[in-house]
Simulated assay, not measured.
Amino acid sequence: MVARLYWGRALRDFGDGFVAVLLPVYLAALGLGAFEIGLVATAALLGSAAMTLGIGWLGARHDTARLLVVAAVLMVATGLVFAGANAFPVFLFVAFAGTVNPSAGSVSIFVPLEHAVLSRSVPDERRTASFAAYSLVGALAGALGGFAAATPDLMAWAGVSQLAAIRGMFVLYAALGVGAALLYRVVPTAAGVGQTKGAPLGPSRRIVLKLAGLFSIDAFAGGFAVQSLLALWLFERFGLSLIQAGFFFLWSGVLAAFSYPVASWLAARIGLVNTMVFTHIPSSLCLIGAALVPNLDLALALLLVRSALSQMDVPTRSSYVMAVVTPPERAAAASVTSVPRSLAAAASPALAGALYATGLTAWPFIACGALKIAYDLLLLWTFRHVRPPEEQPGR
C-alpha cells in the first residue's frame, strides 16, 4: 500500500514539476500579462483550499481510495482542458476547479488523503522516515518534471512550435492522472471508514487550529515565491531559456529531495520542531540574498542552497501533525492544517504579480523570506514543549 502511494505521488509530482515551469510561459504566449498569470496562480491555490477542506470532511466518512481516484480523474480533466483552452476566464475557472499546481509542492487535494493512509500504515518510530521517503519520491519526480519542462524547446528542433509542444505537455499531465487513478484504485480502506459521526476534529482541535494559524503565515509567505513566479523572474530578469531553466529546476529539485532523509536523521536527534525551524531560517536568508544580488551565477547558487534547506520542514511538519492528533482525526487534521495554507498562499501570488508588474521585482522574494523567518520564530516559541510520542521521555 505504501509503495502505491509513493508511485502515485511520483506520477502527479512529475506532472506538477513541468506544469509549474511551463504555466507562465504558456499563458504569456497566449497574451496574458504578469498580473493575470498571478491571478491564475491565486485561483489554483484558492480552489485547492476549497477542495482540500471538502476532502478533509469526506475523508472521515468515505472510502479513501475512492476519493483518491476522484482526485486523479479531476487531474485528467484539468490537463485536457488546459491543453485546449485559449481564453483567460477558462484558465481562471479550471485553475480554481482543477488540480493545476503553480507551486510544484505539497499544496494539493491529494495530500490529506495520502497523509492519513501513510500515517496509519507505519508505527510511530517509522513515521517521520516514511514521510521523508514519501517527500523524497515526490521531490525527485518533481525535479525530473522541472527538467522535462525543457521539452518544448527541444521539440522546436523537430519543427514543432513551442505553443503546440506545451499543449502536448498538458495532455501528458492528463495521462499521468490516468496512471495515478489506476494506482489509487487498489489502496485499501481503513477499518471504520464511513462510520464516523459528528465533527472529524475532536480532542486535538485546539492544537490543530494553532498549527493551522502558524502554517498559514508560512504559506502566505511562500506564495510570493511560487515556482511559476520564480521561473517568470528568472526568464525576464536574466533571460534564461526553457532548457537552462529546466536544468536549474532539476538540480533544485534533486537538492530538495535529498534533504528529506537528512531531515529525518536530524529530527531523530534534535526533534521535529527544531529541525523545521533551524533549517528554514537560513533558506529564507538565501532567498532574500538571491533577490538582491546582480549576478546570475550568484543568484542561482543562493537559490540552490535555499533548495537544499527550505524543504526539510516538509516531512517533519507532516509527521508532527500526524503525531500530535489521535488516529481518527488524522485526515481532518491534515485537511484543516492544509486549507489555511492554501488560502493564505492564494492571496500572495496576485500581490507578487502586481509588484512585479510595477517593476519591484525583488520585493516579493524579500517579503517571502522575512515572513518565513517570523513564522519560524513563532513556531519555535509556541510548540517548543509539545512533543510527539517518539520524543517523549523514556522512548
Score class of each variant (00 low, 15 high):
residue 262 V to Y: 07
residue 228 S to N: 02
residue 309 L to Y: 14
residue 338 S to M: 08
residue 362 A to T: 11
residue 350 A to I: 09
residue 234 L to N: 05
residue 348 S to G: 05
residue 354 A to M: 06
residue 238 F to V: 14
residue 251 W to D: 04
residue 256 A to N: 09
residue 250 L to T: 12
residue 225 A to W: 10
residue 263 A to S: 06
residue 257 A to T: 13
residue 310 S to E: 15
residue 334 A to K: 00
residue 347 A to Q: 05
residue 281 I to E: 03
residue 293 V to K: 01
residue 282 P to C: 08
residue 261 P to S: 01
residue 266 L to V: 14
residue 291 A to F: 13
residue 273 V to S: 01
residue 351 L to S: 02
residue 303 L to K: 09
residue 298 L to T: 13
residue 263 A to W: 07
residue 270 I to M: 05
residue 341 R to C: 04
residue 328 P to T: 10
residue 310 S to G: 10
residue 306 R to T: 12
residue 291 A to L: 05
residue 261 P to L: 00
residue 331 A to P: 00
residue 264 S to R: 00
residue 231 A to D: 10
residue 267 A to E: 04
residue 265 W to N: 00
residue 238 F to W: 13
residue 324 V to I: 15
residue 332 A to R: 00
residue 248 F to Q: 07
residue 304 L to V: 11
residue 264 S to L: 05
residue 243 I to V: 15
residue 272 L to V: 12
residue 271 G to S: 02
residue 308 A to V: 14
residue 312 M to P: 09
residue 218 D to M: 10
residue 241 S to E: 09
residue 331 A to N: 03
residue 296 L to F: 04
residue 259 S to Q: 05
residue 285 L to N: 04
residue 232 L to K: 13
residue 339 V to N: 02
residue 333 A to P: 02
residue 264 S to W: 07
residue 258 F to Y: 01
residue 324 V to W: 08
residue 260 Y to E: 14
residue 324 V to H: 11
residue 318 S to Y: 03
residue 253 G to I: 07
residue 310 S to T: 15
residue 246 G to S: 09
residue 304 L to F: 12
residue 283 S to Y: 08
residue 360 L to N: 12
residue 273 V to M: 04
residue 230 L to M: 07
residue 269 R to F: 06
residue 270 I to Q: 04
residue 263 A to I: 04
residue 301 A to R: 14
residue 245 A to W: 15
residue 350 A to V: 12
residue 263 A to T: 08
residue 268 A to H: 02
residue 338 S to L: 10
residue 312 M to N: 10
residue 298 L to A: 06
residue 345 A to Y: 03
residue 307 S to K: 10
residue 257 A to I: 13
residue 344 A to E: 08
residue 285 L to M: 08
residue 312 M to D: 13
